[in-house]
């Protein structure tokens, strides 16, 4: 079926099967490969995107369900070519990523979190982060990055 999805402020019109996952639509239909998949069963958070501003798992939705909603992916965070937003910059400064596979999903989760809680403490950051799995960092530097943004 034919759908129009609004992703990062741009409309994309595609002919898709009803069973196509939103994560596959983003990655393979419109080439936004920054959104990663780590489990495709809603646990790891690698595929987290913003759905009308709320974090959501792109692997748990069909593309057709996203019609009429505002989707944002990691590619929308940078304020301009070659640049990083404050959270991305804090991630680099704190060494909050290693392989970087979990990172886009974590950035989207935390972007929404910081919008609602601009000055969280460590316990709140860890709670917010606990739905995203990272196998490389042990989370400490990720927590540091968020606290760095919160302190700025």
């Amino acid at each position: 079926m034919k759908i129009t999805l609004r992703v990062n402020g741009t409309d994309h019109v595609r002919e898709v099967e009803p069973r196509l996952l939103l994560s596959d639509f983003l990655r393979h239909e419109i080439g936004l490969t920054g959104t990663h998949v780590g489990c495709e069963h809603g646990v790891c958070g690698a595929c987290t995107i913003l759905w009308d501003g709320e974090p959501a798992r792109a692997c748990l939705a069909f593309a057709v369900q996203a019609e009429g909603h505002e989707i944002r992916t990691v590619e929308s965070l940078s304020p301009g070519p070659g640049r990083l937003d404050a959270l991305q910059q804090a991630f680099q400064d704190s060494h909050a990523l290693q392989c970087g596979y979990c990172t886009p999903g974590i950035l989207m989760t935390l972007t929404a979190f910081l919008a609602e809680n601009p000055h969280p403490d460590e316990a709140a950051v860890r709670e917010a982060l606990s739905g995203n799995l990272c196998r490389c960092t042990g989370y400490q530097h990720i927590v540091d990055a968020v606290l760095r943004v919160a302190a700025a």
């Binding site: 990655r27 920054g34 990663h36 590619e75 990083l84 991630f91 680099q92 886009p104």
Partner: peptide, 16 residues
């Protein structure tokens, strides 16, 4: 880091 943070880095499944 910058490329990874912007979602620009190439992973195997990104190859089309």
């Amino acid at each position: 880091d910058p490329r990874l943070l912007r979602g620009e880095a190439l992973f195997v499944d990104d190859v089309e």
